[in-house]
Amino acid sequence: MSLDDKNGLETLYGVHRADIRRFLIARIGNAADADDVLQELWLKAQNLQAGPIDNGRAYLYRMAQNLVVDRLREKQRRMERERRWSDHTTDFAAAGVEPADRSQTAEEEILAREEVAALVSAISNLPDGARKAFELHKLEGLSHAEVAAQLGISKSGVEKHMAVAMKYLRRALQD
């Protein structure tokens, strides 16, 4: 049977509506969602451009299946979007509570800047050998052996300089 006008497809929709609904319920698993897809199918059938359709029933079933696949893909995209969002907003105090703004307050930023300034000042006031050893080891990431080679001292000397630096910095930052 060839359908050349949309009235033929709408008529077939009316004839096979109950069967298509059962088909959709079996695919989706939810009668309410199946009814939504069925409504969407009706709208698509009405707005379809006229053209030859050899098997109208098969065409309607294919349209229905395509709508189910579209919904499944959209659901997967939504779930992925929500998963990414929830990865950034974990640790809610209670369900349904908006996540707290984790950015620093102005006061916290000022305190952090003051701490950094105090640390920079404390490092610059270290004894010369301890400062050089500390900067090479902690800031540049060199091992004690590499620091020793660069400064021309023993590894034990580097360890002593580091102990002096750490003791001095702890005392300076606690005040």
Rank of each mutant, 00 (worst) to 15 (best):
G152Q: 09
L111A: 15
E135N: 09
D33G: 01
Q150T: 12
H88R: 15
R77N: 13
K6Y: 01
R57A: 14
L169W: 01
D4V: 07
L169Q: 04
P99Y: 05
D19Q: 12
A45R: 04
L3I: 10
L43R: 14
H16I: 01
E80I: 09
K132H: 11
D35V: 05
A118P: 00
E109W: 05
R78L: 15
L111R: 15
A34T: 06
V164W: 05
L142W: 09
G8Y: 02
E98I: 05
L41I: 02
A149H: 03
T11K: 13
D4A: 04
D19L: 06
E109L: 14
E98N: 01
A148V: 03
D54H: 10
K167V: 00
E74G: 11
R62K: 15
E82W: 07
L111Y: 05
S86K: 11
L67P: 02
L72P: 00
Q76A: 13
L43Q: 14
D33S: 08
N55Q: 13
R73I: 02
E10S: 03
G141R: 11
R83Y: 09
M162Y: 00
D19N: 09
G141A: 07
H161E: 15
R78Y: 07
L142Y: 09
A130V: 10
R17D: 04
D54N: 10
A64N: 06
